[in-house]
Nucleic acid binder design. Structure first.
Lengths: 355, 355
DNA sequence: CTGAAAGCGCTAACAG
DNA sequence: CTGTTAGCGCTTTCAG
């Protein structure tokens, strides 16, 4: 029978647990924080009381009293993220980030809070300050291009808040976590060479991104290593967008001696390559092999599904969270950039050179 | 010059603001909470001090002292969400939810925290209790199928935590926010009829979902309204998956008198319809028009891009957040299910009946 | 209209 | 090994 009808059940606090286990507040606190100096028998009793009462410590109270907030802040670029969401463009960056970050946080009793900040505006500082002030996170995860934004990294550094820079290979405060773009591009190129291709086209990304250059260099390195044609006309300029991919592909396939394989630096450009190739009468993969740099959903469901380099976004974020949590329990942070391995997913857009 | 080298800048608190503005703590508190009884002149002074110091109230402290936490909790099904992320299957449910929910929360100074709970297991209660205990959210947003889970809704109801049930049209505690699936299916069917199609195929979703039935009924209603063929063989059973879509399409297109248009109840099934049609020699849209129920990224980037019914996920989540925030400031919650309009996005997979 | 006091749930520092 | 005492930054009474 309901003793107090209509009453909102009062949330159970550390006091209730202490009373139930007949110990002091402090002892309960020690137990939940895995502190030293608690006799096993007592610990047992406290644990039993916690279990019985269904007690869960309040994050807010812990943060108020202690130094830890059990919160990690993941920062993404507002405009780009919202635009991606609005257009439904098939980028699953955020999802992969949540997959890696949230689950890793949960493992350690942490929570990942996802925030958008406007990097380009002069408000970064205000926005970041405000998020830090409201949340007091124990660490921050910066996604590209935030990791290379000095306003952000300096602010974080001044406040002594540990942070991870995803996709950033520069030296500096915090620590970088990235994949090896050059080697990935080289691996894709080598795969194409292995299939017998000797004329391999490459569509670059925006050159303002360091990784675009890295990828091109990896491609060139592999081309030379394979001893195949190193024709500058096989490199076309793109900017990651579908439209730029169309133009670049048209350029490549209109060459007197067109490539038999193309490596494109983004999912959208790869899809564009596929469409243009089809419209120009090239069959994929019989006449033209295509590899996508980005393993987004849209390249898996194209016809044919594309062979792709998979960026380890979830893994990088998980690593970031893990390291940040470690730093928080006093362990030293990494001293050099963490390199996380990519992988090459072979699907039906690549095949041996015909003829 | 740095006055205190190496010192972590002490975060600015309400005290600092009070001192700066030469008023009491409470006055500052009143200003930030838009409380009554503050002379404009004083309010002005406080605001100036806040601005100058870059003060942001601590969420944790506010939650400790007051009743509000400025947090909304969005609950998704753990297994399904993780599986979608892992497989990169092109569902952008979470993204759309974040788009609508986070932005709306931000508008009101709230934060949306995203959590995964295991609906199927017997742990729901424990997991939910634990999230509520740690966070003390001011409201909860339930995504399908959580809104129809009595364990969850009862728990929330007992604790007097306001909650929204997205995609749930049942009566009960909290409030439902959904789209009109039947009308949406009818609209798509009507569009096909308008284009001159008289044999329109329909691929259902799993019949364990109420919305599958709703959609089929909407389709049938529109078929009759258009006075076109109401052939039961034109309805094929699917379960939302790509594979089931392949089988259903094959079945439909192998009919002695195959449909000239197909409405499929999921993005994956629509893509399957496209592939099977192509492989069987049907040109889309010349020989067969296709409409997808779900406007996910993968159906926008197919060749041709698919005409689709867009579910207003972002809008529903935004509405949910808005209503929960309203309830929190004392306004009454809605008394009946909120219906949010869908839309039909016409792309290149639909065309007039040929011949 | 404004201020002073009390306390939210927890941890840090110190006693015992 | 365990308990006591003070706050954390803020909102809530309740006085003025």
């Amino acid at each position: 029978m309901q003793r107090n009808p209509g009453a909102r059940p009062r949330p159970v606090t550390i006091k209730d647990v202490a009373a139930e286990a007949d110990v002091s507040l402090q002892t309960v606190s020690r137990v939940i924080n895995d502190g030293p100096n608690v006799r096993p028998a007592i610990k047992e009793r406290v644990l039993k009381a916690i279990e019985k009462l269904g007690y869960v410590p309040s994050l807010a109270a812990r943060r108020m009293a202690g130094k830890k907030s059990y919160l990690l802040l993941a920062l993404n670029d507002r405009d780009r993220t919202i635009e991606d969401w609005r257009s439904g463009d098939g980028t699953d960056w955020v999802d992969q980030m949540l997959l890696g970050g949230m689950l890793k946080c949960a493992e350690h009793g942490y929570r990942m809070i996802f925030e958008l900040v406007d990097t380009h505006s002069s408000n970064v500082e205000r926005e970041l300050t405000s998020a830090l002030g409201a949340l007091h996170p124990d660490g921050v995860i910066l996604t590209p291009p935030h990791g290379d934004n000095p306003t952000i990294t300096n602010l974080l550094n001044e406040r002594r808040i540990p942070f991870a820079r995803i996709g950033s290979t520069r030296k500096g405060a915090g620590f970088g976590i990235a994949m090896d773009d050059a080697t990935a591009a080289a691996a894709a190129t080598a795969e194409l060479a292995r299939l017998g291709h000797r004329r391999i086209g490459f569509i670059t990304g925006s050159l303002e991104y360091a990784l675009s250059t890295d990828r091109r260099e990896g491609y060139q390195r592999a081309v030379r290593a394979a001893g195949i044609e190193d024709d500058p006309r096989l490199i076309a300029q793109g900017d990651f967008t579908f439209e730029s991919g169309e133009a670049a592909t048209r350029e490549l396939l209109s060459l007197p001696n067109p490539p038999t394989a193309i490596l494109a630096s983004s999912g959208h450009m790869s899809l564009a390559a596929l469409e243009v190739a089809k419209s120009m009468g090239f069959r994929v993969p019989d006449d033209l092999s295509i590899i996508s740099f980005d393993d987004t959903p849209i390249v898996k469901f194209s016809a044919p599904p594309l062979t792709a380099i998979r960026q380890p976004i979830a893994e990088m974020t998980a690593r970031a969270a893990e390291l940040l949590i470690k730093v928080n329990i006093g362990e030293p942070g990494p001293t050099k950039t963490q390199i996380v391995p990519f992988s090459l997913i072979v699907r039906s857009s690549t095949g041996p050179l015909k003829g």
